[in-house]
């Protein structure tokens, strides 16, 4: 029988596994959903998962480089959300629908 010390000793692994679970949920959302808005939300989930592991390593190795990187990731995430939502608005203006399959009309 495995010991239950993993329940009471919070280590770096706990945070990393939490981050991995969050990343998997975000990936499932990107793959399975059709609504472009929910797709962007799932991408935000994945970016947050990465942020958690950055901060975890930064805390356990006592270096602040990870936290600086989290700043950069947050900026990129905000920019990505702005551009993506502007694209979604223009898709919606044209098709009255935000389903991902309308993005195939973008080619050409």
């Amino acid at each position: 029988m495995p010991s239950t010390s993993f329940l009471t000793d919070i280590s770096i692994n706990h945070y990393l596994i939490l981050s991995a679970i969050l990343f998997s949920i975000g990936m499932a959302g990107v793959l399975l959903r059709r609504n472009i808005i929910v797709l962007f939300m799932s991408i935000e989930l994945m970016l947050n998962a990465v942020n958690i592991s950055f901060v975890t390593f930064s805390h356990y190795f006592d270096k602040v480089d990870g936290q600086v990187m989290v700043f950069f990731v947050m900026t990129i995430a905000a920019a990505e959300a702005a551009v993506g939502l502007a694209l979604a608005v223009s898709i919606f203006k044209r098709f009255k629908e935000v389903n991902i399959r309308f993005f195939e009309h973008l080619k050409g």
Partner: peptide, 22 residues
């Protein structure tokens, strides 16, 4: 970012989707 999302959702006026999953 959440304000951005909610504003865009308000513009779209979406109801429950008939086909939410692929």
């Amino acid at each position: 970012v959440m304000v951005l999302f909610v504003m865009v959702l308000m513009l779209f006026d979406l109801k429950n989707e008939l086909q939410a999953f692929s």
